[in-house]
Design a binder for these strands. Structure first.
Lengths: 258, 258
DNA sequence: TAGTGGTCTAGACCACTGT
DNA sequence: CAGTGGTCTAGACCACTAC
């Protein structure tokens, strides 16, 4: 590939000029997804800069999430992640009836092998944000179900569900395997017919723990979805806090114009 | 604040240990939002490392978006951004009737001063992603309306609307000021009563241009919303591509359980 | 003026990858 | 083994901020 040259009279520092040139090469398609960038040694020689300057240019692109460094191999233009489109009706009852939770149903429809691991069930007081939404008191305990979802063995999402203890007791919700159709199926069996959900979407950079458990590289944000489920009496029966690898998802919603 | 010490037998490199200790101090609340981190000189002295090692630790936190560096002043724990909650009914007709576009109505309700600038209107062939959604041919032109939204003078969102040329012609949609109620009011006046929208949500790191125009620091992702508006005949009459500073928004959706 | 972060140099040793 | 990126040192000069 063609590299430009440094302009010492440019107000941008050298590392920025190099980063800009590499970024432009990617945008032009001169460097395609999966292509290897010029090595640090090549950049040092071509631009006549010290190694740290070449590294800093590459660091820019890494923290923008545009390239991925692999030790001993090189730096590569990031490959587009396989994207999962999540429709807003993914928790509709008709999907549940088939005996699958939303993630499993979705993944199988898309032809990828879904896995769930790191399942943990506990009982504890609810955090503030959950208390507000479930309308429970500070003294009330909730059942907390935590798990991680993988597609083709790649972790893509972590989820924590909070269910008021009085609703979960005596059902398989408190067991590691919540049974066919998942939590929502159990709640409906217990007489809490689901009426609607609200979802609150945000995006941010991941915490250290999220980076590790979702195997996220630098420069990759997460999407969070905080879903509250209401039964036909208008009672909030579950809050589910999910953290997804942002590059692996598109969320779709259908909104009436009234 | 209390700093720990390095463990040379730890498998994590020194810069990582320092970053982890600073991150933990923030999580503990030992360093609160707005607080100044120990300077590079202090970190060098305390941990007995070279300057680049101290800098690398801070660089970690910067690219995670947890701290912000200000030349000549120091490095500070990022302040929480003022968050705008966007309800899924924000484009409902009843909000439009008041004579305001969604952004203006929203901002005024929240008590912040809204501004719109960088308004550009042009006519060109539609990009592929837009063509698919508007169901127009490659040869058809669309009217492209581009603008930037600011809250209290701070840029928070950029938006580009695409309207089939035959719908926009002869209306104020092709003028810089599209008039009271915005594009949607003009479309409904022209007989295209809006029925529903679909919104497709993604998150990613910003491009160089987006970083500049939204004044985004390192470690701050963007939320994108691709909204398609359908009239009561089921025809797609507009696609709006928005890029928002992710930390400034929560998107809310209401979903029926069917 | 002193303190801060921003940029750069010229080396060094290490761990990992592929041949 | 050579080539690659990962980490680190010990300096240097600069631009900006606050006093």
């Amino acid at each position: 590939m063609e590299l430009g040259s440094l302009d010492r009279s440019d107000d941008r520092p050298p590392y920025r000029q190099i980063a800009d040139q590499l970024r432009a090469a990617i945008d032009r398609g001169d460097l395609a997804a999966g292509d290897k960038l010029p090595s640090e040694a090549v950049l040092m020689g071509h631009y006549e800069v010290a190694r740290m300057t070449a590294r800093q240019a590459i660091q820019e692109l890494r923290s923008e999430g545009r390239v991925v460094a692999e030790q001993g191999r090189g730096v590569f233009v990031r490959l587009p992640a396989p994207v999962r489109r999540l429709a807003s009706d993914r928790f509709a009852r008709r999907h549940r009836d088939a005996g699958h939770g939303a993630f499993l149903a979705d993944a199988e429809k898309a032809g990828v092998t879904p896995t769930v691991d790191e399942i943990e069930v506990s009982r504890k007081p609810a955090p503030d944000a959950i208390r507000e939404r479930l309308k429970v008191d500070a003294t009330d305990e909730v059942v907390v179900r935590s798990r991680r979802y993988l597609a083709e063995g790649v972790p893509v999402e972590m989820a924590v569900s909070y269910i008021p203890a009085d609703l979960a007791e005596g059902t398989r919700i408190v067991e590691a395997d919540s049974g066919p159709g998942g939590i929502y199926a159990r709640l409906e069996e217990a007489g809490h017919l689901l009426d609607r959900f609200t979802e609150e979407i945000t995006a941010r950079m991941p915490t250290a723990d999220e980076r590790r458990r979702l195997r996220l590289g630098p420069g990759t944000p997460v999407l969070t979805v905080l879903r509250t489920a209401y039964d036909t009496d208008g009672r909030a029966v579950e809050v589910c806090d999910t953290v997804k690898a942002a590059l692996a998802y598109v969320l779709e919603y259908d909104v009436p114009a009234r």
